[in-house]
Simulated scan of single mutants.
Amino acid sequence: MDHAAVLALYDREMREGARPDDPGARIERAGGVVRQVADELGWNGVLWSGLDAAGADRAVREQIAYFTGLGRDFEWKLYAHDAPADLGARLLAAGFRAEPAETLMIAETAALALGTPPPAGVRLVAATDPAGVELAVRVHEKAFGTDGAPLRHRLLARLAADRGTVVAVVALAGAEPVGAARLELVPGTPFAGLWGGGTVESWRGRGVYRALVAHRARVAAAHGCRYLQVDASAMSRPVLERLGFHPLGSTTPWCYEN
């Protein structure tokens, strides 16, 4: 893989040329940034910026004024290669708070080993209705310790609007949900995204996460997606590297709260 070329393609297709990730969201381009605007439970934030040192502080102030005017908390999704080089320090000075950095990882779907099965006693089921979504939300809340309401909102909205662009899957041990994840397809681009992969603590290290990645990769391959992208935590990065994903840089969510 030509890392520089793929990173440039990712920036162009998935950030600068972003599509809304929620039926009720919209993409706006203003003041040197590309941002998504959604309701209170959707994702609001800056996806891409083309800034220089002279205009960066003004652009940051403009985005704060815009989102706070809507009554929205929002996120500035900053990548290590974004300019200016000190944009993170500028966000900090403007009142943003940094979440833990993640690794942008991308794999060519055709190069991945797709045959990884779930561990014994576990089966993977599609979450295609409200009951399935609730199982995925239960895993999310147990695995990450955060409120599952935004995920519930997003999955139900996507499934109602267009089942073809999101694939949610739950790992069940008997009737108990022990892992969950989703695949987001982006029609018109060569990319698909792996999101929300989580395993409850008692089942970690048994291969549930690997099986969820392989399952989603098979679905992406069946849809003709050339690349799979994931923002990997420190916990998931080693697993993804062993599966064939390449680290292309880091990304930090900078959060601004009203």
Rank of each mutant, 00 (worst) to 15 (best):
Y209H: 14
L212G: 00
T165W: 04
V219D: 05
G188N: 10
L243M: 15
G188M: 02
A234L: 15
A160K: 13
A157W: 13
P238N: 04
G179P: 04
T199H: 04
A168R: 02
E184W: 04
A181D: 07
V200P: 02
G224A: 11
R242I: 10
G197A: 14
L228P: 01
P187T: 05
P247W: 03
A171P: 00
L212S: 06
L212M: 13
R163W: 12
G164D: 14
V169P: 00
C225K: 15
G188E: 01
G196V: 00
R206C: 06
T165L: 12
S236N: 00
R242A: 12
H223M: 13
H246N: 13
R204K: 12
G249V: 02
G164I: 03
Y209N: 04
W254E: 05
R158E: 14
L172T: 08
A160M: 05
V170P: 04
S202M: 08
S250K: 13
V186F: 10
A157E: 01
L240Y: 05
P177S: 10
Y209E: 08
A211M: 04
V219N: 00
Q229T: 13
G197F: 02
R242Q: 11
V200G: 06
E201M: 10
L228S: 07
L194Y: 02
V166A: 09
S233D: 04
L194D: 01
V178L: 10
P238H: 05
M235Y: 08
R237L: 11
T251P: 05
T199P: 12
G205I: 12
H223V: 12
G244P: 06
G193E: 13
V169A: 07
W195L: 15
S250I: 09
V166I: 09
W254Y: 15
F245P: 01
V167L: 11
R242W: 10
A180G: 09
A175S: 15
R218S: 09
L159P: 04
